[in-house]
């Protein structure tokens, strides 16, 4: 088991945003977490990354308890997040954004990895010297994804990668996610776009008002009556 979350609770002031959530991700798996706006998806990822404190419960990553670990150390351990809304370093160049992604990696050659990213996403190479904030939404999402990949993630957390993007770009982003999975990256994907997420996921979890209410294989959840009504609009 690469990631194991047990009975995780988290609060925003007096709001109980995450209620005893439990979830697991195995090595090489693509797991989707779906739910409505405000259900606690982003809170779960923020708590996982250590930028929001857990009130109680346990997060185990590759056998180590990381519940109280500093955010910066978690990145070094390989838990890397592509945050909601992309959160680029807007005034800095695309290439600087990518290099900063490799901030925690002391060794290795970031240059080689940047070249590989440029090969994978040619648009990054074209825009390398432009301030990241001037790119279009889709291009920014690719920069955000590339920046996370520069950290050599062992577990990639994706928060709403399709949000605000045109359908064509959504397809492109999901293609990239699938490609990463085929290459062996373990991914926890959080999406409001439940259909697209569950269609490519090995397994899925459904979260409602801070509680995980369902978990099954991606395909099973897609055909689950409750999921279809609540999230797929069918």
């Amino acid at each position: 088991m690469l990631l194991e979350i047990e009975g995780l609770n988290s609060h925003y002031g007096r709001i109980h945003a995450l209620k005893s959530a439990s979830l697991t991700v195995r090595e090489g798996e693509l797991v989707a977490l779906v739910g409505a706006n405000g259900a606690g998806k982003t809170t779960l990822l923020r708590t996982l990354s250590g930028v929001h404190p857990a009130s109680s419960g346990r997060i185990t990553f590759d056998g180590c308890d990381i519940t109280r670990m500093k955010a910066s150390r978690r990145v070094a351990e390989g838990v890397v997040q592509v945050p909601e809304g992309r959160q680029l370093f807007g005034p800095q160049s695309v290439e600087d954004n990518l290099r900063l992604g490799a901030y925690r990696r002391g060794s290795g050659k970031p240059d080689d990895d940047i070249d590989r990213l440029y090969e994978m996403f040619p648009v990054l190479k074209v825009k390398r010297d432009q301030p990241a904030g001037t790119l279009s939404g889709g291009q920014q999402q690719i920069v955000a994804l590339g920046r996370a990949l520069m950290a050599k993630p062992r577990l990639l957390l994706l928060d709403e990668p399709s949000m605000g993007l045109a359908p064509l770009l959504v397809a492109e982003i999901f293609d990239a996610v699938q490609r990463l999975k085929r290459e062996g990256t373990t991914i926890l994907l959080v999406e409001q776009n439940a259909h697209a997420a569950l269609a490519i996921a090995d397994r899925g979890y459904v979260i409602e008002t801070g509680e995980i209410v369902l978990s099954d294989s991606g395909a099973a959840l897609l055909s689950n009556e409750r999921v279809r009504q609540a999230y797929l609009g069918l």
């Binding site: 370093f89 900063l100 925690r104 950290a151």
Partner: peptide
């Protein structure tokens, strides 16, 4: 890289934490 990391922190604190910068 250290200088860029300081700038990055000023531009976006959350993102800086998420790339592993100790803000």
């Amino acid at each position: 890289l250290t200088g860029k990391a300081i700038l990055a922190t000023s531009h976006n604190r959350l993102a800086a934490q998420l790339v592993g910068i100790d803000v």
